[in-house]
Design a protein around this nucleic acid. Sequence first.
DNA 1: AAATATCTACCTATCACAAGATAGGTGCAA
DNA 2: TTGCACCTATCTTGTGATAGGTAGATATTT
Lengths: 196, 196
Amino acid sequence: MTAKNIFLNKRPSSTDTKNKIMNAAEAAIVRGGYSAFSFRDIAEEVGIKSASVHYHYPTKADLVVAVMMRFTDEFQAILADPEVDDFDARTTLNHFIDGFRSKNVERHSMSICTMLTADKHLLSEAVSQSLADFYQVKLGWLTKVFMRLENLPEDAARDRAGQFVATLHGASVLVQATGELAWYEKVASPWRQPSE
Amino acid sequence: MTAKNIFLNKRPSSTDTKNKIMNAAEAAIVRGGYSAFSFRDIAEEVGIKSASVHYHYPTKADLVVAVMMRFTDEFQAILADPEVDDFDARTTLNHFIDGFRSKNVERHSMSICTMLTADKHLLSEAVSQSLADFYQVKLGWLTKVFMRLENLPEDAARDRAGQFVATLHGASVLVQATGELAWYEKVASPWRQPSE
DNA sequence: AAATATCTACCTATCACAAGATAGGTGCAA
DNA sequence: TTGCACCTATCTTGTGATAGGTAGATATTT
């Protein structure tokens, strides 16, 4: 690959297409879960044919595992490290609540992990595992946050992390079911931290 | 219909079959949501043909609406009235937590309303409405419970009801996703009431 | 440098199957 | 003889997946 090619080569890049496919799949899963999209849907959105989607991801399970792994990686990349000295646990938790709201609740959808959890019965072992892995990452990080925030030992902090995760996820279910966005703040408010 | 017929008539009763169909559908929805069962599945379980299921419930939406309405009715019938004098709010709430656990969480599934909420994008208007109706009934009852339990005005009690519902639903998501049943008690414990 | 081979990212066409739904028929009880 | 609860048979649509082909970029050989 010469420098020229970077500008002139019109040959489709595999990673570009793969990312487009994952983007479409992720959006579709958030909208309606595992069974709410087909290879044909994805293909149309990306601008290729369904057989070409199979070229990049042989099976649906392969595709969803890839989506979950990317999701987990991005999640980890964005998070602040709770073990550095100047970590601000209060602000971080508030931002987390806001992020969950803007990324999921306000878009009239639930998180990709809640959606896949609901479809767990029809997930392959590999997909289930990638889902469980994500929860471990999420709970692990929140455990550290609560250790800092509430000066708790790891065990107790992990319980708090679980309570927190459950509350946010449950809130998004409540919003989705009733159609009342206001529920989110009402449910999440006990977890909000005073700014000072 | 004579008294004799009660014992001798082997002609299938419409309501019996309808109940069997609803039982099968409800169990299937709890297992995997709206798209996880077909008329053929239901038919096989009941012991008739799929066309006969359509005879009782012309469309899938009709069937699921019927299931949700029956579910809501049964829910209301079981609940103690929080407005009578000897209503024991503490015990009632503990029983509610236990009931949610034994009916959903321990069976490695989530509640029918959580499952349908996740599938909301593909529900017809009628089904969505029956789902929203159930949540209103549930929240309405819990609001009264919290008014008694915590001596709150209606507004504040309703917020508490929402927080409670969200927590239990979220806990069941967490259990389902991680496969760790222990999360349920850990998440629900702050809501448990001291027995005296 | 030219010729050849291989690889890549797509394509068309098709498979087997399962879905919701409908038309029209059968047997039996009231 | 009417109505009910069921049946067989079939339609259409959509699914995940596969086989096999093609044009063009890249790599290898001559």
